[in-house]
């Protein structure tokens, strides 16, 4: 066994061992994910949203228990991928802490046939969580390099119903709208009215608004079936600030 044959065999070995390593890691990460989901469940028991404490939708937790969050964080932060904390992803941006992702997804009350708009793709994790829960996700990211890596990552991960583009989220994505749900993960001094207009009757938008780049309040904007709009400030969230600008 010489020459190409040996090389091919070696290659096979490498592939196999990589696969073993992956399965081993997959088991590790599965445990870490389960723990993360448990933490989210516990926090939800403690934190009042509005006046009540209520559990996070089981579908959201199920999805978050499946999606490999470690693929969405920079390699050097992988060890912390399942800790309940935000992590830096470069360009001054962060991937939100798992509880916040769970909460925002839960607040959207999405259904399988929904079309969702996300402003602030970041690493793509939020879009990945929404992907199995809805029909289509459209996601806009201000910072071009982030948009490109996130698009690639989502494509590689098989999240085929997610579309990412680089650009200004303020005007939404009118060609793809109106939307059943809009989730904004960038700080804003006010709710962009174009986004309110792109919400379907019965639709829900979750957006952090606030004074500075430091502390925001999570706001839920609802459009009733008759088109009447109202907002509700839910709780202060200490987003490590996301996209600057507005």
């Amino acid at each position: 066994m010489t020459g190409p044959m040996a090389r091919r065999f070696a290659l096979l070995l490498v592939c196999l061992s990589a696969a073993w390593a992956l399965t081993a890691r997959a088991d590790d990460t599965a445990a870490a994910r389960a723990e993360m989901v448990e933490t989210i469940r516990e926090i939800a028991e403690d934190v009042a949203i509005g006046k009540e404490r209520r559990p996070i939708d089981a579908r959201v937790l199920e999805v978050m228990g499946r999606i490999p969050r470690h693929d969405f964080v920079p390699p050097r932060a992988r060890g912390l991928a399942y800790a309940d904390r935000p992590l830096p992803i470069g360009h001054g941006q962060t991937i939100s802490q798992p509880y916040i992702v769970a909460l925002m997804t839960d607040l959207l009350q999405v259904e399988a046939d929904h079309v969702v708009l996300e402003i602030g793709t970041g690493s793509g994790y939020q879009a990945a969580v929404l992907s199995p829960l809805v029909r289509r996700v459209h996601s806009i990211e201000i910072i071009t390099p982030l948009a490109e890596t996130a698009a690639q990552r989502l494509a590689d991960g098989g999240y085929a119903n997610v579309q990412v583009r680089a650009g200004d989220g303020y005007y939404g994505w009118p060609e793809a709208g109106p939307f059943d749900a809009i989730v904004v993960t960038a700080a804003a001094s006010h709710v962009p009215p174009p986004l309110v207009r792109q919400l379907k009757p019965g639709g829900r938008m979750v957006i952090p608004v606030g004074a500075s780049f430091m502390i925001q309040h999570l706001m839920l904007v609802e459009k009733d079936a008759d088109g009447a709009v109202h907002s509700e400030l839910l709780l202060p969230v200490r987003f490590v600030p996301l996209t600057g600008g507005h």
Binding site: H91, G92, Q93, I142, I143, T144, P241, G244, G245
Partner: peptide, 9 residues
Amino acid sequence: GLSLALQVP
């Protein structure tokens, strides 16, 4: 805020 703003293209 300034650092974040300067990240925007």
